[in-house]
Simulated scan of single mutants.
Amino acid sequence: MSHTAHIRSHRKPRRSASKIAMRAGVAGGVLGTLAVTGASGSANAAEPVTQTLELPTLTADLAAQVAQSADVTQQAAANYELQAERDAAAAQAAKEAKADLAEAKKKAEEEKKKAEEAARKAAAERAERAARDAQRATLSASVEVSSGSGSSGSGSVSAGASVSTSTATGSAAAVVSFVRAQVGDAYVSGGTGPNSWDCSGLVQAAFRQVGIDLPRVSQAQSTAGTQVSLGSLQPGDILYWGGAGSAYHVGVYVGDGMFVGAQNPSTGVVLKPLSYDPPSGAVRVL
Rank of each mutant, 00 (worst) to 15 (best):
Q234I: 00
A119R: 11
R136K: 14
E128Y: 03
L233G: 02
F178E: 01
S146P: 03
G190P: 04
A127D: 15
S275M: 01
Y80V: 13
A174C: 06
A282M: 03
R14P: 04
G251A: 07
L58P: 07
L139K: 04
R15C: 09
G243S: 14
D61P: 00
L271A: 07
G231E: 10
R120C: 03
A262E: 05
A64K: 04
P235K: 08
A89F: 04
S246A: 08
A93D: 08
K114V: 11
S140V: 11
W241G: 02
L139H: 05
A76D: 11
G190M: 12
T165L: 00
A77G: 13
A91N: 11
D237W: 02
G29K: 06
V254G: 05
V183Q: 09
D61Q: 10
F259K: 03
Y187F: 07
R14V: 15
R180I: 13
R14Y: 06
P279N: 10
R86P: 00
A108G: 13
Y187C: 04
G243V: 00
L139Q: 05
V188S: 07
V250D: 02
S142P: 00
S156H: 07
S266T: 09
G242Y: 03
A262T: 05
S200R: 03
G251W: 00
V269W: 01
S177W: 07
S232M: 06
A67R: 06
A102N: 10
S40G: 03
R8P: 10
R23T: 09
L214N: 06
S154E: 09
A168N: 06
L62I: 12
A89E: 12
V66A: 14
A186D: 11
R120N: 10
F259R: 03
E85I: 12
R136H: 08
A97E: 11
E85Y: 06
P279R: 06
G148K: 11
A97L: 13
V179T: 07
A224M: 05
T267E: 10
A91H: 05
G28V: 15
E47D: 08
G268D: 04
N44K: 08
E125S: 09
R23K: 12
A134S: 12
I7M: 14
A134K: 14
N195F: 01
V26I: 15
A205I: 02
A45G: 02
Q75R: 14
S162G: 10
S280G: 08
L233E: 02
G236D: 04
Q219T: 13
E85C: 05
A124E: 12
K112Y: 04
P215K: 12
E111L: 11
